[in-house]
């Protein structure tokens, strides 16, 4: 295939699926949450973190709109040497790892329909010292658009790595 056959990059627009960086931070040492607020004007989100570590062994999870009600349903395949699957119909968060550890190597969560007044679907893949392999997909049952996305840990962050939020314009 010649170079002339490579499609030109999209310039974006209302109907594009181009993700743009909304915000990126290094978690503050000793903090237990990283929360992006005042999200608006997007229809899709991609929530990523890379090379973050925890001060002590713990797990991480995601919540939206500070909602800790039982509104998160998902299936998960996770493990290190052996993969196991599980289903959670009414969780108060989207759990990342089933095991625990200090190294949260990285994960990517893609959330669709965040500006809709109905359920939002999400898919995720990642890796940590708790679960070398992780695949998650599910639904966040909420009518309100997502304006806040939070990464929580049962431990505290060590002040390294990156947590970033990307979005596709509405």
């Amino acid at each position: 295939m010649g170079a002339s056959q490579i499609p030109a990059a999209s310039t974006g627009g209302a109907t594009s699926d181009n993700y743009v960086l909304i915000s990126s931070v290094t978690p503050t040492a000793a903090a237990s949450t990283v929360s992006f607020t005042s999200i608006s004007g997007y229809r899709k989100l991609m929530f990523r973190w890379l090379d973050t570590t925890l001060a002590t062994s713990g797990s991480v999870n995601i919540t939206f709109n500070s909602d800790t009600g039982a509104n998160y349903a998902y299936g998960k395949v996770a493990g290190t040497s052996t993969m196991s699957n599980s289903q959670t119909q009414k969780d108060t968060k989207i759990a990342l790892n089933t095991g625990t550890g200090t190294s949260q190597l990285g994960a990517t969560y893609i959330i669709d329909g965040i500006n809709n007044s109905g359920p939002k679907t999400f898919q995720a893949f990642g890796s940590s010292s708790g679960d070398t392999n992780l695949l998650v997909n599910g639904v966040y049952y909420a009518s309100a658009p997502i304006t806040t996305a939070t990464l929580n840990t049962t431990s505290t962050f060590s002040g390294v790595g990156t947590v970033a939020l990307y979005g596709v314009a509405a």
Partner: peptide
């Protein structure tokens, strides 16, 4: 032990420290 989080307002870029409840929502074993 007091817990805190960081909050990033993506519209303004402002980063603030917020105090969190002391309870950790660790789920009980199923």
């Amino acid at each position: 032990m007091s817990r805190f989080g960081m909050e990033i307002n993506v519209e303004t870029g402002e980063v603030t420290r917020v105090e969190l409840p002391a309870v950790v929502d660790e789920a009980p074993a199923e």
